[in-house]
Computed example of a mutant assay.
Amino acid sequence: MDRVIHPIEQESYRRLRARLDTSHLPPLTRAVVERVVHSSADLAYADDLVMDEDDLVAAHAALHAGAPVVVDVEMVAAGITRRETVCRLKDARSRPGLTRSAHAVRLAHEQVGPGALWVIGCAPTALEELLTLDASPALVIGLPVGFVGAAESKAALRASGLPAVSNVSEKGGSAVAAAALNALLYHPVPADTSEETL
């Protein structure tokens, strides 16, 4: 079923595009940049986000083929309204050398295995833990926020070579992480496939 776009959202995008030229960006990169900017009202994300269009194309196909979506916190899950997500934070426990968020990532990895899309918008330690696992992700949306470890964990994600959406600065958060995933969910599936848009 096609998503019905509210007039307020249409007007918001019109104003966004009047202030920020995204027309030079490839389609999925443009979709992610615009939705993150739209969710945050922060035009600076256009220069802060880092992603590769080929990675997004592959992730978009995996997402629409039913790949699992794993989130680090329920706030990210709440922002992804058109897809079931996996969040194991309620089952996780902190222990020496392992935060609760990192343990939740381990539990989720045991549950979903390889090929998932991971959406991390809160805890840098969740992203750090993911990078230690053999997760073979379809995509890692790594946009944790904070003054301790956030920028460093995102730099480590970029250095890992995994397919990713990240940003360079300390900012981020659940809303922008969910927005990046939603951009891929809302973007139409190419007409030459038999998949349906979610």
Rank of each mutant, 00 (worst) to 15 (best):
E110P: 01
A104E: 02
L49F: 01
A41I: 02
P114C: 12
A59F: 11
L43R: 14
A102R: 13
V86H: 02
V57C: 01
G115V: 10
H60L: 03
D72N: 12
D52L: 12
L107P: 04
G113A: 11
A123R: 03
G97V: 02
G113Q: 12
R88S: 14
H38F: 14
K90N: 14
G121V: 08
P114S: 13
V105M: 15
A67S: 14
H64E: 14
A104Q: 02
P124Y: 05
A41C: 06
D42N: 14
A67G: 05
W118P: 08
S94D: 08
V69R: 00
A123D: 07
G115S: 11
P68H: 06
A44C: 11
L56K: 08
H103E: 10
D48Y: 11
A65E: 15
R83T: 06
M75I: 09
G79E: 10
Y45S: 13
R106N: 14
V119Q: 03
V71L: 07
I120W: 00
E53V: 09
G66P: 00
I120V: 08
D48H: 14
L107S: 06
A108L: 09
G97N: 05
R82S: 13
V69A: 00
D72Y: 12
G79T: 08
D47G: 14
S94K: 05
L43F: 13
G79P: 08
H109V: 10
W118D: 06
S40G: 14
A78T: 11
G121R: 06
V76T: 07
A108N: 09
V73K: 03
Q111V: 07
D91E: 15
A67N: 05
V112M: 01
L98D: 00
E53I: 08
A77L: 01
L43D: 15
R100S: 01
V105C: 04
V37T: 10
T99E: 10
C122T: 13
V36K: 07
T85Y: 01
A61Q: 04
A108I: 07
V36N: 08
C87I: 09
M75V: 10
A123T: 05
P68N: 06
A108T: 09
V76Y: 05
D52Y: 07
H64S: 08
A108E: 10
A123I: 05
R88N: 11
R82Q: 12
A67V: 06
L49V: 01
A58K: 14
V105E: 03
S40E: 15
A102I: 11
V86D: 01
H103S: 01
P124G: 07
M51G: 10
V105G: 03
G113E: 13
A67Q: 04
G97T: 02
V73G: 05
L117K: 01
P96L: 07
A102S: 12
P68R: 04
A67H: 04
R82V: 10
L43T: 11
D54C: 08
D55I: 03
S94P: 06
G79S: 09
C122D: 15
E84R: 15
P96D: 12
H103F: 01
A61K: 02
P124C: 07
G97F: 02
